[in-house]
Amino acid sequence: MIQKAKIVLHFPKERVDKPIVSRLVKDFGLEVNILKAEVNPNEEGVMVLELSGKKEEYKKSLEYLKKEGLRVQPLSKDISMDRNKCVDCTVCVPCCPTDALERNPQTFEVKFIKEKCIACGICIRVCPYGAMTIEF
């Protein structure tokens, strides 16, 4: 069975220099398509990948990535904002790479615009109130 999936990889800064993508190709025979990459030495990185290959190998590759200390997240559109938890502080607003979190200049309420969201997961970690969640 062939598995095809889009995933978001978060690199801790100690892992940025490692040749992760080539290992996915060589060791697991996956086809890798880099959709988006923001990886600089000495920094945390985010990479959005499209992977396809044998289901077994795909599964093993995810385990390998986790073992390497990377956080793996499926790229899904199922990010949501819990309005009961959001206090509209706005601290997430400048962190969103696609302006999917928008502050109303009058009410100071923060609106989540799902269509713009690429599910990078940044707001989930940045929100102090646990108001942004992802469903797998």
Binding site: V87, D88, C89, T90, V91, V93, P94, F108, E109
Partner: peptide, 10 residues
């Protein structure tokens, strides 16, 4: 771009 920790709405 700015973000606030203090909530004006609250």
């Amino acid at each position: 771009h700015t973000g606030s920790l203090s909530s004006i709405r609250k």
